[in-house]
Design a protein around this nucleic acid. Sequence first.
DNA 1: GTCTATAGTGCGATAGAC
DNA 2: GTCTATCGCACTATAGAC
Lengths: 234, 234
Amino acid sequence: MELSFDKFKKEFDITVDDICRDYYLNNRETINIKKEAVAVKNLTAILNTTLKLSNDKGFQAMTLRDLSKESGLSMGALYTYFTSKDELFRIIHNHGMNMINMALVNRLKDETDPDVKLRKAISIHLYLSELMHQWFYFLYMETRNLPRDERKLTIESELFTEQIFIDILKQGVKGGIYSIENVILTSAVIKALLQDWYLKRWKYSKRKTTIDQYASFIINFIESSIKPVRRRTE
Amino acid sequence: MELSFDKFKKEFDITVDDICRDYYLNNRETINIKKEAVAVKNLTAILNTTLKLSNDKGFQAMTLRDLSKESGLSMGALYTYFTSKDELFRIIHNHGMNMINMALVNRLKDETDPDVKLRKAISIHLYLSELMHQWFYFLYMETRNLPRDERKLTIESELFTEQIFIDILKQGVKGGIYSIENVILTSAVIKALLQDWYLKRWKYSKRKTTIDQYASFIINFIESSIKPVRRRTE
DNA sequence: GTCTATAGTGCGATAGAC
DNA sequence: GTCTATCGCACTATAGAC
């Protein structure tokens, strides 16, 4: 395989710091802190701690007193960086969604061969979800905290990722390398398998399944079903 | 296919009433209500409303005031049926887990042919999750509300279902009808596909995918990968 | 059995000292 | 910029009338 997790990890260039710097620079009016270094450092601590506590017991169950204690900032200091617990939620939610979607698209845009692109899309999605595990898990589990009308955004994001796979599969069918009776259901299934990796991390980690094992296993599994075959049984 | 959702639905004999009656009869000391009919009726309303509200915004976010309003019982009346919000959680969690595991095992125990049994296990799991959707969703999403040491139970339950598939697959490999390099990963993948049906119900429902379409699709998908083949490409 | 009223707690948010 | 102290509120849980 041309792509491995180790290689990806070394080339991976997104840090939580960058996300926080980005957020800080775009919200200088509301964040009343002049020194960029201080603001970014504290924002990073806030987001990382929130992700940690949320992933453990849920965002609702995390109190700002918990966050204050674990992040080392006082209650008062926290409120320099956001105006309400609700806003803190939205910062993580929106920036996380954006970052993931962009990272995925950017790393796939130059690939044209559907066969290679499919494997690459699967690997990259798995690798991203491994390096940004807390963000993926947060986005999956905490969407219910959004009011009904804002959940649409998350739904669109789910469908957006799925669409990437739909396009690849359609292209492959057109080129005759895949034989698929239902492209949409096939994409849904691929998505489910990608998500299982970060939703059941405890299981795979306990069994010492490596991410590259999982990647090549599901690539095989999926290709068995979509590549034209002559079956011996039946 | 010998099994369809319509047929299953007609034969399905578990009601929330039964679960509540069972719970009531086993806890007569703590529930200070003499008339069985009254107790079961109210318990059913409590459980159904809790499931509804929890599935919408999460158990933590649901307040007992919400529950009181929606179920039609006063705050005081609610506390006749459970001693704390925590206990309410456990009632649903434990009874749900038991019910699901038992229902699955009971309906599979007489089947010996691994090929038939695999299809049956997949169909029945899907059908059960459809009819008891709120329970499945609750168990999946709310486990984090349990204290760390009690989460083991849920983990065991996840592995228990998976074990059912591991056993079937192993038997099939032994009998020469399946060719599987990694039985455990294959079972994990099957489980993930079963769960996607109830975790993304909004998606499948929006696309008008029926449960029998989904069932036969993933059965095909899985069998493509585990049945011995001669591949044309490669 | 079921209600209303309320005790007691811990939350999100803020004011004002430093 | 960051802290501590505190306000007001909404929550779980209960007491006591009916």
